[in-house]
Structure formats: C-alpha cells, structure tokens
Design a protein around this nucleic acid. Structure first.
Lengths: 151, 151
DNA sequence: TATTGTTATACTCTATAACTATA
DNA sequence: TATAGTTATAGAGTATAACAATA
C-alpha cells in the first residue's frame, strides 16, 4: 500500500447515519426554529424561556412558581431571576396565594397581557415560516407525534 | 367584588397553548430523548455531542475539523476540546491531510470503531424505547417531517 | 488576502446545596 | 417533617476576538 491510498480526503461529509436518529433530528429541528424565534421575538425582549413563562402566566393567572417549574421543567433556582425580570418590566404582578402562605400567585398585568397577545401572534407567524416546507396537515401530524415522545 | 373572587388559586396548569407550538414540542421531545441518551450512553463515556462527532468520524474517516463543524453546526473553538479528549482516550487519530497542509484528517482507531459499533447499537435501542408510543411507520414519518424543518 | 486550527475569554444555561418561612 | 421560594455557586454549553501556519 503506497502513499496514494493512505488517508484520502473526505469530499462530502456523510451524515446519513445521524439523520436516522430521532434525537438528532429533534434537536436540530428545535434549534432551527429557536433561531428564528430569537430573531423575531427580540423586539418584545422575550427569549424562548421568557415567552414560555409569560405564556403560562397569561393563560393561568395566579399560577405559582412551583407550578411553573413543574409544567415547564425548569428548576426553581433558575426561575427566580426570570420572574424578577418580568416583574421589574411591569409584565407580571405577585399577589398573595389565597390559601397557601408560602406560595405567591403570579398574574399578568394589562401591559403583560397586551404584550403576550402580540407575541403569541408573532410566534404563530414565525412557526409557519420556520416550517414552510410543511403543509398544515403535516404540521399538525408533527406536533401530535412529538407529543407522543415527551407527554 | 369581595375577597372570595380575588386571585383564586390555579388548580391544574393549562399548557394547551404552548402545546400548539412546533418549537416548544420539538424542544421538549428532544430533551426527553437526550435525557435517556445521557443515561444509556454514559457507560461509553459519550455525551450527545461526543457521539455525534465520533459518529461522523466513524462514517467519514479523514474528515477535517472544519467539515465536522459545518456538518454538526459546532463552532471551531468548541470542537478543539472535544477532539483532544477523544484523541487522548485513544478513540481517534490525527493524520496529515493529503493535500492541505493547514488541515488535519481525523480517523477512528480500531478501539474507536469498536466503541462506536456498540454505541450506535445502544443508541438505536434507546431511541426505540424513548419513542415506544410510536409505531415504526410513525417514527419514520416523524424523522422525515423533522428533516423538512432544518434541512 | 482567505482559511484551518487554536487560545483566551466571556456569556448563557443548567444543576446542586443550603437557607427561611410556612404547611 | 415536608414544601415554596430564595440565595449562592458550580458546572456545562455557546459565543466572539485574535493569533500562527498554510493556501
């Protein structure tokens, strides 16, 4: 075996194996959508986590930090700063919990509701654009199949 | 309006809005699979990124760092440590590039090939388990739809 | 002049331990 | 004793700038 056969260069990288893996594809697709999300929602000062937190508060006024953490899979210490930031921006309010003195109910302010109405509309548009190769039916199928993985 | 109607507690958190979003579902599903991946492939000392890098080298012997970065969407500075770690473990070898003196060809060692054969088999089993609510056909549909998002 | 690989570094995200106030 | 919220902190992941060697 001469030098001519040793260690040839790779012309085109073959990623076909990785592309058979569900985890790889799910992560790549998620990062692709998140990239567009970051661009389009920067105007609202919302990153994906902020958006998710605000959205749960928006649709569940009075929800507690603990409930937020459980439903979004966030660790309590990592939620503290997010909540404080949203509160200092005047998007949410903290009110005493009606029955549990330890807990605090999180409520959207009118400003927060208004922002989320716009942000959710933008999120919808963005998702259509980020999945423009899919038909509405395919998009619904994709959502349904993804939920079978994690729910 | 008395105190009895003010700020009631949330009994069950409603996340139905977020569940309509592709990005949210893709991220949750990806994290779910990655969690199982971390458990099952810890025995090989491979995290998802290490696995992806090793897999591309395994199926593309002689690939360069630059090509790896482009195909896996990794930034060059962040690949350096990964490559050094895999090399020091004796899983890959660095050989001179046949035509470009700046580049280095990355090759799996026999030990690396053997490890990846086992790791890829484990990855396959893990994915089946992590998506046990899906039929083989649904799994294939899901992979296909995800690729329409990011490819 | 442009590119490969690298170093240094900063920023963000995620995770763990421990504390307080209340149940 | 257990739980809600918090603080401090450590670790992992991701980002930009700048450099030497080669094209």
């Amino acid at each position: 075996m001469g030098a001519s056969t040793a260690a040839p260069a790779v012309e085109q990288v073959d990623t076909s194996y990785l592309q058979t893996l569900l985890g790889y594809n799910a992560r790549r697709a998620a990062l692709s959508i998140i990239g567009v999300f970051l661009e389009r929602l920067a105007v609202y000062g919302l990153k994906p986590v902020d958006f998710s937190v605000m959205s749960v508060i928006h649709h569940n006024p009075g929800v507690t930090s603990r409930q937020l953490c459980a439903s979004l899979n966030i660790l309590p210490p990592n939620l503290v700063g997010l909540i404080q930031s949203l509160e200092s921006r005047g998007l949410i309010e903290r009110k005493p919990h009606p029955t549990d003195g330890r807990a605090v109910g999180l409520h959207p302010t009118p400003k927060g509701v208004s922002l989320m109405q716009q942000a959710e509309a933008t999120a919808y548009e963005l998702e259509i654009d980020a999945s423009s190769k899919l038909t509405p039916k395919q998009r619904q199928t994709l959502v349904s199949l993804l939920q079978k993985i994690y729910l």
